[in-house]
Design a protein around this nucleic acid. Structure first.
Lengths: 223, 223
DNA sequence: TTGACTACCATATATATCTATGGTATATTA
DNA sequence: TAATATACCATAGATATATATGGTAGTCAA
């Protein structure tokens, strides 16, 4: 069982992540682009290396990569499978829900949210509030004061109203952002939790502000 | 939300199963062969139908099919409850694990960890790393600089070693704490991420420091 | 009876994707 | 010092895969 080089490990990591997130392995071109290489041959070299060392299985045709062993993620069984007992299966059903990650939300300057299901997470229902919860990936640093980091996943409960001080996801025009919500008589404020960013203020007559939902949870994954 | 024909349902079913079993969506040829058709155009017809009715998303390139809605997976019933289908249960099992919350961990002055299972959470296995992960509830404010708050749940991967800078859960004497880990030639440092707390330094001859595990995730629930 | 949809077949063509080959430069090991 | 492996670049060409187009036949509703 040969050791991997750093670069090979990175490539394997990318393939495993891509498989996990998008549901399909990447093409060679996608790997090349991810690492900002110019030559497809570079990808071939790495794949050959990974296959030779027994970490990757290749097939012919498009997207025919299979991660055999992932140095960073260990599976329960030797063969990479996991066989849940009947009991375990029964316990799981009814206690988890499949929650979609519908895109990114800006914690910083508002960006367009990409509203399509990128991946799905099973979440314990204890974490959920009400129906139709969904997840958004945080992009940006404006809510670090509330301990929400770039890359965190926010669990959102859809609702059109919010209390002052609650953290919400809001739509202004067609831009989505997450901020702390404050409503005054004459205006609505969306306050970041980072002195480097400005509060966004909306007054009557300005463009519409729509609250998409309230942040009811945070998920973070360290690499 | 248009109804599917029987044939369309079968095709969608095949695509979903293929994705689940092989990890990749099928090619049009594979779909054709599965149904013993001779013409690839037949597959195209069905894919068009499924896409038009909103059950399937297509991309350009090979194996770019994504099942959006699976008619066999059940959504909340009228009474608000949720009856998972056999399919959904199958998908869930194997994708979640039951993770125990084994007590509290100090992010502040070390306190005794109460090592008994208080509750259990189902977590998506994408969140886990390796075996025997467990959860600890954070007590204290010393890791707020790393955006870990009082009341958060830490997902721990048991391991006895750690890299410099990683956030770990460590046992010193019989007190458990979470800190950033640094090993130097002559000493081990457990650094908080809050200027109000002091770094804990262990030298040779001092009492033992044992790393219980590494923090691989964070879960937070707002009330 | 016309139109719209389904469910097939058949073939040509475009393009996405992978393979093959050969090059450079730099480490590491024998 | 030669041999080997890594880590990249560049390009030609093969092949896997998808799209476009145009058939036939059956069903169903207007």
């Amino acid at each position: 069982m040969d050791k991997l080089t750093d670069r090979q490990r990175e490539v394997l990591r990318f393939i495993a992540d891509h498989q996990e997130k998008r549901g399909v392995p990447p093409t060679l071109e996608e790997i090349r682009d991810h690492f900002h290489w110019r030559a497809i041959g570079t990808v071939q070299d790495h794949l050959r290396g990974l296959a030779r060392k027994g970490y990757l299985k290749r097939g012919r045709g498009a997207r025919r990569l299979e991660v055999l062993r992932d140095p960073e993620s260990v599976f329960p069984d030797d063969d990479g499978t996991w066989t849940p007992s009947y009991q375990e299966r029964r316990r799981a059903s009814g206690r988890v829900s499949l929650i979609p990650v519908v895109g990114e939300v800006a914690a910083g300057s508002p960006i367009l949210a990409v509203e399509n299901v990128e991946e799905e997470w099973f979440l314990d229902r204890k974490l959920l509030r009400g129906d139709d919860n969904f997840l958004l990936r945080v992009k940006g640093e404006s809510m670090t004061g509330a301990h929400i980091r770039d890359g965190d996943y926010l669990l959102i409960r859809p609702q059109a109203v919010a209390e002052n001080g609650e953290i919400v996801v809001a739509l202004a025009g067609d831009e989505v952002t997450t901020k702390r919500f404050y409503r005054h008589r004459d205006r609505i404020e969306l306050r970041p939790e980072n002195p480097a960013f400005d509060t966004i203020v909306y007054r009557r007559g300005d463009e519409e502000v729509e609250i998409i939902g309230k942040v009811v949870g945070v998920l973070r994954k360290y690499r």
